[in-house]
Every structure is written in structure tokens, then in C-alpha cells.
């Protein structure tokens, strides 16, 4: 007995540390993904900053953007951020139904955001302000479209997790997944702050 213990006392720390390392680093790994996503948006913002004034005699931001619509859109994303926060608080309490309820509300706000954005795009393209029209519009659709795509995938992920939670409950794995989506969702809201400040507000100011 003592022989086994002394043997295990020589090496076990190596295995123990290896054993629980992957679990704890999910957060850090996902954070690194978000940071690399941040770099994608940084390059798109840089492109927009360089090309955003090249209208090619086409429409300028002040002609195209409806700030009331953008304000409503911003509110939708902000509301979805706080409702996701409430979902996380309910998850910590272990309340499955309440978590699902707040996740559902978050998804609805996300869908409202996407709907308004698609309506805006449709309206712009209808007026002839297509991505092909000018460098400004190419950069605009790429930047705002990439953000919209992220929100779309966020909603798909959200629905997937709602199914997972309703099927398997608030198990450890689902909590981890919900935590990752929480970071993703709040990160998209942070990117949107840059979008409405740089693209819409500064665009309309001129």
C-alpha cells in the first residue's frame, strides 16, 4: 500500500494537471476566438475608413441612412444583451424554464434586429444603392453585412442551445455552451457600438 502511494506520489501531479486543463481553458480559447474575430472587424473597419468617402458621384450616407431606424436597431441589440444577461442569471439559479424564456426573448430581439437591417438593405438596394454602386457602398455592405451574418449565426446557435437545454437540462456542458454564446452575443453588441458610431452617426455628420 505504502509502496503504491510512494510511487504515485512521484508522478501523479503531472497527470492531474493535464487532466483538468482542457475544461478550464474553454473560456480562454473562446476569448481568443473572439479576439481573432475582432481582427476581422478591424480590417473591415479600416477598409470602410479608407473607402467611406469615395461615393463615385453616387448617394452619400446622409442621403441613405435613416437614423431613427438605426436607433431602433441599436435598442433591439441592447435589449437582447440585457435579456441574455437575465438568462445567464436564471441559469446560475438552475431555473430551466426561466432560462429558456429569457433565451427566447433574446432570440426575438435578435430577429427584430435582423429584420430591420434586412429592411434597410432592401430599401437601399431598391433605391439603386447596391454594393456595386461605389467603394463606399461596397465597404458599407461588407462591414454591416458581416456583422449581420454574425448575428444570424448567433441566433442559429441560440436556437440550437434552446433545444439542447430543453432536452438535456442545465447540465455542465450546456452551461459551458451558454457561457460561450453569452460572450459571443455581448461581443457582437460591442462591434455594433463601433458600427453605429463610425458608419451611421459619423457618416450622417459628414
Amino acid at each position: 500500500m505504502s509502496n503504491i502511494q510512494s510511487q504515485s506520489a512521484e508522478k501523479p501531479q503531472f497527470y492531474l494537471e493535464e487532466d483538468h486543463h482542457p475544461e478550464g481553458s474553454t473560456n480562454l480559447g473562446f476569448w481568443l476566438y473572439l479576439m481573432s474575430d475582432c481582427l476581422i472587424f478591424a480590417t473591415l473597419f479600416a477598409t470602410y475608413a479608407v473607402l467611406g468617402r469615395n461615393y463615385a458621384a453616387g448617394p452619400a450616407p446622409a442621403d441613405l441612412f435613416d437614423l431613427k431606424l438605426v436607433a431602433i436597431n441599436t435598442a433591439m441589440l441592447l435589449f437582447s444583451s440585457i435579456t441574455y444577461g437575465f438568462a445567464m442569471l436564471q441559469m446560475e439559479r438552475g431555473a430551466k424554464q426561466e432560462t429558456l424564456f429569457w433565451l427566447g426573448i433574446t432570440g426575438l430581439f435578435g430577429l427584430a434586429f435582423l429584420g430591420i437591417e434586412l429592411y434597410e438593405f432592401y430599401h437601399m438596394i431598391h433605391e439603386g444603392a447596391t454594393p456595386q454602386r461605389s467603394a463606399f457602398l461596397s465597404a458599407f455592405f461588407t462591414l454591416v453585412g458581416t456583422h449581420g451574418l454574425h448575428v444570424t449565426f448567433g441566433i442559429i446557435w441560440l436556437v440550437t442551445l434552446m433545444v439542447q437545454v430543453s432536452k438535456h437540462g442545465l447540465i455542465h456542458e450546456n452551461r459551458r455552451r451558454l457561457m460561450c454564446l453569452s460572450m459571443f452575443w455581448h461581443f457582437l453588441d460591442v462591434v455594433w457600438i463601433g458600427v453605429f458610431s463610425v458608419v451611421y452617426l459619423m457618416g450622417v455628420v459628414g
Binding site: 473560456n27 440585457i82 444577461g85 442569471l89 446560475e92 457561457m179
Partner: peptide, 16 residues
């Protein structure tokens, strides 16, 4: 504990 997030109702509302 970290994974579960350390936001409280108050901190979310303050941020909002």
C-alpha cells in the same frame, strides 16, 4: 465559478 459568470442582476442593470 468563473464559467458560470460573475454578473449579478445589479451589474447587468447598471451596465444596461
Amino acid at each position: 465559478g468563473h464559467e458560470a459568470g460573475h454578473g449579478s442582476f445589479k451589474s447587468y442593470v447598471t451596465g444596461f
